[in-house]
């Protein structure tokens, strides 16, 4: 692996969807539908994850080692549908945190505050 690939800053800024996926997987292990479902609950009003985007994101994040596949938990539904569960890697968690911090700093900047508080 080339040097610097473990530097979280290298991945920033994240796209809104990448951030959603990473943040959700940082809190718990989820399968595909689980991610979609949780995203709808956790981030109402945000761009929603569709099937095509979701798996391209998963595919890319696996390749970038931001997430990894984990064993299905004991309470997983027992039918024939193939469900794989994913969780963040340490790098992935660090990247999500770095993005969150970046967003917080952005929102906390005086310029943003003035924008938000000024009448339209």
């Amino acid at each position: 692996m080339p040097p610097g690939s473990s530097d979280p800053g290298r991945f920033l800024p994240l796209t809104p969807l990448d951030f959603q996926v990473l943040t959700l997987l940082a809190s718990r292990e989820l399968h595909g539908y689980g991610i979609v479902q949780s995203a709808g609950e956790a981030f109402p009003g945000q761009p929603s994850l569709d099937l095509g985007s979701l798996y391209r994101i998963i595919s890319r994040m696996l390749a970038e080692r931001l997430i990894h596949e984990v064993k299905a938990p004991g309470d997983a539904p027992a039918d024939k549908r193939v469900r794989r569960y994913y969780a963040v890697t340490n790098l992935g968690r660090a990247v999500a945190r770095a993005e969150a911090a970046r967003l917080r700093a952005l929102l906390a900047s005086p310029a943003t505050l003035i924008l938000l508080e000024s009448p339209r």
Partner: peptide, 30 residues
């Protein structure tokens, strides 16, 4: 949906195809 999934390039399809269908069906069920 199945036809579209099967049209993805083979490495991607083999890795995620079944899973995508499962997710789609889960969504439908809900």
């Amino acid at each position: 949906v199945a036809a579209l999934v099967s049209a993805f390039p083979s490495p991607f399809r083999e890795r995620f195809g079944a899973e995508m269908l499962a997710t789609y069906l889960d969504q439908r069920d809900s």
